[in-house]
Simulated scan of single mutants.
Amino acid sequence: MKQSWKPGNMLYPLPVVLVTCRHENIDNVFTVAWTGTICTNPAMVYISVRPERYSYELIKKSKVFTINLTTKKLVKAVDFCGVRSGRQVNKFEAMQLECQEAQTINCPILKDSPVNIECKVNDILELGSHHMFIATVTNVQVDENCLEENGRLALEKSDPIVYSHGEYYDLNQVLGSFGYSVRKKKKKK
């Protein structure tokens, strides 16, 4: 038996990321769980942000932001940066987040993030409670500690986290790999 609920967003778990932004001499970092891929070629992503958020105007004016993937090591900062406003506190200092400059946009990236996705805003869709920033990926920086010898990204080495219904979870078990359900089994010799 299933219950019928009112319309709502039930796509969980979600990636939870720290988004960094800059306008003129103001830098900020905030937590976003409403983010994802739009297109492969050209590489495009989105973040959905409430207009009342401090970073909304910074991104709207600068037209750039960076998506910083998160890890178990960053989980306290993820939570803090989602419940505190940059209007009142410097979240970089409060959470001791080290930054460096992005390579293709005027924006900070987080050093402790295993993957930093530099983005240039193409469009802003005003959808209701959230506005969607649609962006082209201009560069991706990857921590070499997350690479295997053959160059494959092994993000699992960084202990990534996700968000689901108000809680943060780690990802600690591989259940299968892409195509495993149809892959032919190797014959035993």
Rank of each mutant, 00 (worst) to 15 (best):
104 T>M: 07
144 E>K: 14
148 E>Q: 13
51 P>E: 07
99 C>G: 11
163 Y>N: 02
188 K>T: 15
90 N>P: 10
87 R>C: 04
163 Y>G: 09
117 I>R: 01
58 L>Q: 08
158 S>D: 00
61 K>C: 00
53 R>M: 12
102 A>M: 01
60 K>R: 09
20 T>Q: 01
139 N>W: 02
140 V>I: 14
38 I>Y: 04
159 D>V: 03
59 I>K: 00
92 F>D: 07
51 P>R: 12
97 L>P: 08
110 L>T: 08
150 N>S: 13
71 T>W: 00
19 V>F: 05
121 V>Y: 00
33 A>R: 09
10 M>F: 15
48 S>M: 12
162 V>Y: 04
181 S>T: 06
161 I>S: 10
20 T>M: 07
40 T>D: 13
99 C>T: 15
137 V>H: 07
40 T>F: 15
26 I>E: 07
147 L>Q: 07
113 S>D: 04
28 N>G: 13
108 P>A: 08
76 K>Q: 11
143 D>G: 02
183 R>T: 13
45 V>G: 01
133 F>M: 00
128 G>N: 11
80 F>C: 11
124 I>F: 02
111 K>G: 05
94 A>S: 11
41 N>S: 10
83 V>M: 14
28 N>T: 10
99 C>R: 08
59 I>A: 02
155 L>V: 05
44 M>R: 13
88 Q>H: 15
28 N>M: 00
10 M>S: 13
27 D>A: 11
69 L>H: 02
105 I>T: 05
153 L>Q: 03
7 P>S: 09
91 K>D: 08
122 N>S: 08
95 M>S: 14
24 E>K: 13
73 K>A: 05
116 N>H: 04
134 I>N: 01
34 W>S: 07
141 Q>K: 10
143 D>M: 00
163 Y>L: 14
23 H>L: 09
37 T>K: 14
55 S>T: 08
7 P>H: 11
51 P>L: 06
30 F>E: 10
96 Q>K: 15
120 K>E: 03
18 L>W: 06
61 K>P: 08
1 M>L: 01
133 F>P: 03
16 V>M: 04
26 I>G: 03
58 L>M: 08
44 M>A: 10
187 K>N: 08
135 A>K: 02
84 R>I: 15
43 A>S: 06
169 Y>F: 14
87 R>N: 09
2 K>H: 01
170 D>G: 13
36 G>Q: 08
82 G>M: 01
16 V>E: 02
183 R>M: 13
30 F>M: 14
137 V>M: 08
102 A>H: 00
25 N>V: 04
189 K>W: 08
186 K>C: 10
189 K>Y: 14
84 R>W: 12
125 L>V: 07
67 I>V: 13
59 I>L: 03
38 I>G: 03
176 G>T: 11
175 L>K: 15
30 F>V: 12
39 C>D: 03
99 C>H: 11
110 L>E: 11
5 W>G: 13
75 V>L: 04
12 Y>L: 14
12 Y>Q: 14
63 K>N: 00
34 W>L: 10
174 V>S: 10
86 G>N: 03
125 L>R: 03
20 T>E: 06
67 I>K: 08
